[in-house]
Write a protein that binds this DNA or RNA. Structure first.
Lengths: 284, 284
DNA sequence: CCGAAGTGTTCGGTACTGCCGAATCAGGTT
DNA sequence: AACCTGATTCGGCAGTACCGAACACTTCGG
């Protein structure tokens, strides 16, 4: 009994499989994976897996380490990753500003793009501090539990935010995560008033972020920049002071993209929602 | 008349095609490519190309920008690239050292892995200078025309070097490129004596590099670190002084990898080749 | 020292997938 | 409005890319 409805007409199964292989291999951080391990995780025969792996290897997407070939991610991915961040001219534009932010705050500075409402970090400048946390690039981060995410959500319509909340389910990450829509809306309102968002141990315990959105030439929120640090050794900065700094630099990014500053966007927003906008302009 | 010999039994054609799509899209730096453009470059029908592109897009490898969908590299590639450089723990280990080198010299510091004799840069720390050149990651660079390449070649057997030369054909990049095997061997000998390699406008006009090899726990040359700068505004450094600095830091990398220092390797080499080793130890 | 069990690799045959081409649809331009 | 460019849809055949089973090879354990 052949399936009467092809799963998806516009999809290439072998390519999908290849991409799943990539996913599988990337999940094994350091030691690489053997062919059988991959084929088991993939649920396909070894011969199929071998052909796929060979093809990927020939293009440098994987590399096989003898003996007893173990597969790891190949250097071509590094190249493509590098090219991908260049294809967003935003990344290029942001780097000097991130460097400035990192130098001024001594923290790790990051830039995230808005990808269907989710923040995806595409650039990062580590601070001089010795402590490093795993801040991977290219990962969709939880919108409700990160500074960049909340900065971006605050610029979206109430309906869109609700939609995103339904998708993610407002998953709890730490004791401080906002897991309830009403509270989130209050928080987003505060973000709009202040011009920057704060993540106070809401995604990772002991870690603290401040983020502010930037805007492209259409006036849409294109992403956010943020700084990340260990809460414990947060230096003598005042929160508001640092928030203003990040906001200022986010506006610089907007300007480079030909977009409006936060002030402009926010006054437009508050005119629509009818909220008083006085505080906004006073703050930033 | 179907080809009696299948092109390659152990290869998946649709995956190959997909990877060629990736290659094609990555070649268009900024504006993205339309479906027809891709399908023309690919030499396949639009329907086929569409299915492939859709599959890649669904996994975040490409992203399609409306209107009139134009395809660009997706953020998943950034993630994989990041993971790939972490899967080489060498990259992780090197970063602080690269930072140090960059800070000490004011130039762009880079780290290349040895991939079948070719240098592939996987990490880079830009110097504070304003001038930036395109130093892409993950690309196989010409071994005979770069400092990192020559540093690595100098650690290989004469036969292996000849082999690589045959492969590349010692292509000329600038007026200063070494295009003849005999000259290259003399140069490599000098590299072995000095402990560092110099690329004096041999790959790109006006650009200047110094590189030194590092070694893994098997004592094999695993790669090289190098600094790159504009020849014109090369500061008041003495060449030998900077060479020693790079060499010193390369040795630090070796140590972190559990490998021998340059001195150790080079004395072993010269014992084999019978060349006098006195100079080597005096230099570094 | 020799088996046994685990690898990775090769190869036939066949079901089905993924290819092409032509037709349709959408949007912008003259 | 008619045109044109480009994206999308769909039918149908061909070939390919699956699977399974047999074959090498290494690594243990007895």
């Amino acid at each position: 009994m052949p399936a009467p409805t092809p799963p998806d007409r516009y999809t290439v199964r072998s390519v999908q499989r290849a991409l799943r292989v990539l996913e599988i291999v990337s999940s094994e951080p350091v030691s690489g994976m053997s062919l059988t391990e991959i084929s088991q995780a993939l649920g396909a025969s070894k011969s199929t897996t071998l052909a796929t792996a060979r093809t990927l290897t020939a293009h440098g997407i994987l590399r096989s380490i003898d003996p007893g070939p173990r597969y790891k991610l190949g250097t071509a991915l590094i190249r493509y990753g590098d090219l991908a961040s260049q294809q967003s001219p935003i990344g290029e534009v942001c780097l000097p500003i991130l460097r400035e932010v990192s130098a001024a705050t001594g923290m790790t500075a990051r830039m995230a793009l808005a990808e269907q409402g989710y923040p995806v970090c595409i650039e990062r400048i580590d601070g001089p501090g010795t402590i490093r946390f795993h801040a991977p690039l290219g990962r969709r981060e939880p919108p409700h539990a990160t500074a960049a995410g909340k900065a971006m959500l605050a610029m979206l319509s109430e309906e869109r935010v609700s939609e995103i909340c339904r998708e993610t389910g407002l998953r709890r990450h730490t004791a401080h995560t906002i897991t309830d829509v009403a509270t989130l809306f209050v928080e987003l309102d505060a973000v709009r008033r202040r011009g920057y968002a704060v993540d106070d141990e809401e995604e990772v315990d002991g870690v603290f972020c401040i983020g502010a959105p930037f805007f492209d030439h259409n006036g849409a929120c294109a992403g956010a920049i943020s700084v990340t640090g260990i809460k414990h050794d947060l230096p003598g900065w005042k929160l508001a002071e640092m928030g203003r700094l990040i906001g200022h630099h986010a506006d610089e990014v907007s300007k480079l993209l030909g977009g409006p500053g936060f002030l402009e966007v926010s006054s437009r927003l508050s005119r629509v929602t009818g909220a008083p906008s006085g505080r906004v302009e006073a703050e930033r």
